[in-house]
């Protein structure tokens, strides 16, 4: 059995010096994509059983323990959890969902997640995302683009954002965020 930390090593990178905001790769993040009828009581019960979280409102996220559930679309949520927990979340959701018309997939390896934090974190993202991040609530979720890469953004705290994109763009996104977080460029923003 290969070591997990080794398996995810491609996403472990050290940021360059002189950044005006912190940039980290969250390499142990697991993800589960779930589609179905978000308004259905059975769906909510299965999600609760699998994650402890309620179904989030439109463009919001809910949190419980190690899990965060993000609203992705009218019929889709994304679960953030520990990488090793994702298969269990899928199994638990599917078991509880029974015959319902749903889709639950472990997609932990499909995407890369980065955390950008600091007082000017939102300014870093606003260099490439056409989104009013200054007025973006904690827990709010936005699917948009950064530069030309399809990106999801969730504000996890006053000064903290998580950014996710398809894994093949990870190297690009990492470089992009590190350039955008340059201290000089944030000094007058």
């Amino acid at each position: 059995m290969s070591d997990l930390s080794l398996a995810r090593a491609a996403l472990d990178v050290t940021p360059p010096p002189d950044l005006g905001a912190q940039v980290e790769a969250l390499s142990s993040r697991g993800m589960v994509a779930i589609r179905g009828d978000l308004a259905d009581a059975g769906f909510a019960a299965a999600l609760k059983a699998a994650t402890g979280c309620d179904v989030p409102g439109v463009r919001r996220s809910t949190e419980a323990g190690e899990c965060r559930v993000l609203w992705m679309s009218t019929d889709e949520v994304m679960i953030f959890c520990e990488w090793s927990a994702a298969p269990g979340v899928v199994a638990s959701f599917m078991e509880k969902a029974g015959d319902a018309h749903v889709l639950a997939l472990d997609v932990s390896d499909a995407r890369a997640v980065f955390r950008v934090s600091g007082e000017k974190a939102w300014r870093v993202l606003a260099k490439g995302a056409p989104v009013d991040l200054e007025r973006f609530g904690v827990g709010e979720v936005r699917r948009t683009r950064i530069a030309t890469v399809a990106t999801g953004i969730v504000r996890t705290g006053d000064d903290s954002f998580e950014v996710f994109c398809f894994r093949s763009f990870a190297a690009y996104m990492w470089d992009w965020l590190c350039v955008g977080a340059g201290a000089e460029s944030l000094s007058d923003l």
Binding site: V58, R59, S73, T74, P130, R143, T144, R145
Partner: peptide, 12 residues
């Protein structure tokens, strides 16, 4: 109308 977001054309 699906997600309620008001966004610039480049997202569409």
């Amino acid at each position: 109308p699906a997600c309620g977001v008001e966004a610039e054309e480049t997202e569409f």
